[in-house]
Write a protein that binds this DNA or RNA. Structure first.
Lengths: 235, 235
DNA sequence: TAGATTGTTAATCGATTAACAATC
DNA sequence: TAGATTGTTAATCGATTAACAATC
């Protein structure tokens, strides 16, 4: 696998696994693809060669019926009387998710959360390569900016975004900046032609059509949990 | 507001805001409640007294029709020809979410992510109070465990979980431990009578009926973004 | 009163489930 | 062949949208 220092290939779908026509996957199924992949990779690591819809459903809290309906979209990987081919499905899901290739990313914001994300191994494992970090407060990472690295990833002042991003061949940005800075950075990233933004700022952003985004709001997740606890069936 | 050092009241619903009967809120609506609350709090801070369904919908990327249908569940806060009372809705949503009171929480795991979460201000702001941190590797936070604090929150060895948790009056745990440790801690927390677990470990956990859980898998979120980028309508 | 916006209904749309024939 | 499990259909269920009467 490429390191952040060797310029990697831009994302390109490989052609060797049966493809699902884009738009063919219903949104509800699409939202489960990442979970399927995670579980199947778990079984793959454990050496399991086939998995039944009931077993996968039990682990994920989904019905066997739903598993079969979802996985049938990828065709060919189930054998009646036997189950699904784990390795084949892993490949098909990675292709469907677009993570069969490599994605170059940048992190914007090196606060508490940003620092944790740089060191998070789960991104690299799934083919997301962090090429650079941009941060507004130089004091945080020492005086000599050009020579500063964290976890092997170079750290730059965010003022240099327009100067440096075009050379990094980056498709995605992870936004971990204060709420007040988020919209401005979305605008700048969009102007620079970024394709996707993973946003951790707890604010609704205005995003142009040319950019896709996913929001992760940790406080909202904790509220979701509170709601579930308060509304749990009495025990 | 209570600090982590003054034992706070356990969560108790206040009775002064019209309640929605539990189970009355459809799951799809429930999943949007936190976002509504975040946006309405944003308007409240800005001094906006009323908000129209079209304006709220535009910000959240939802239809005005859906906003009206959702908010009508809480009754009384809309005025025809005018809009919705922001302050009233904020109160009603907090009550519906169960975050009108205070929740005591513990953090398990003081790795990269755990460290970021301790310092995250968004939790405290929404009424979640971190009472203690439990961590497996003592070396990480100095020799003298009993006197170690981070951000004012005491840090303990996770071996002392059974000894200390019962005295902390805690309802929720935030789980930020390695994948391999997660299931064991779920079992221990369930035995200790915890009500909710916010899980950051990228693994499907087996959770007893007495415990509610919400999973946050950062790699899965990034995959969601990759899927959205790959399947975006051509521009 | 005139204009605006909610609350609510009916119609549409999409997702899930149950069941079983197909087939390994 | 007998048993097991998928693939797929039809039925059910739930969510969203469009439209407009109610009403501020």
């Amino acid at each position: 696998m490429n390191t952040p220092n060797t310029p990697p290939e831009p994302h390109l779908a490989t052609g060797d696994i049966p493809t699902v026509r884009a738009g063919t996957i219903p949104p509800a199924t699409a939202s489960r693809l990442g979970l399927y992949l995670r579980e199947l990779q778990h079984f793959l690591r454990g050496g399991t060669e086939t998995i039944k819809s009931t077993a996968l459903g039990r682990r994920l809290g989904l019905s066997d019926s739903q598993i079969r309906r979802d996985l049938a979209l990828f065709g060919e990987f189930g054998k009646r009387g036997v189950g699904y081919n784990v390795a084949g499905l892993v490949g098909a899901l990675r292709k469907a998710l677009g993570t069969d290739g490599q994605w170059n990313t940048v992190l914007i914001g090196l606060g508490n959360l940003g620092n944790a994300l740089v060191r998070y191994r789960g991104f690299q494992q799934q083919g997301f390569v962090l090429r650079a970090i941009f941060e507004a407060e130089a004091a945080k990472f020492g005086a000599n900016l050009t020579d500063t690295h964290i976890n092997g990833v170079p750290v730059y002042d965010v003022q240099r975004l327009e100067e440096l991003l075009p050379g990094l061949n980056v498709q995605m940005a992870i936004l971990a900046v204060p709420t007040t800075a988020a919209q401005g950075l979305v605008n700048r990233l969009a102007d620079l032609g970024i394709s996707g933004i993973l946003n951790f700022a707890p604010v609704s952003l205005s995003i142009p059509d040319s950019v896709q985004s996913v929001d992760v709001d940790l406080a909202v997740e904790l509220q979701r949990l509170a709601f579930a606890v308060v509304n749990a069936a009495p025990r």
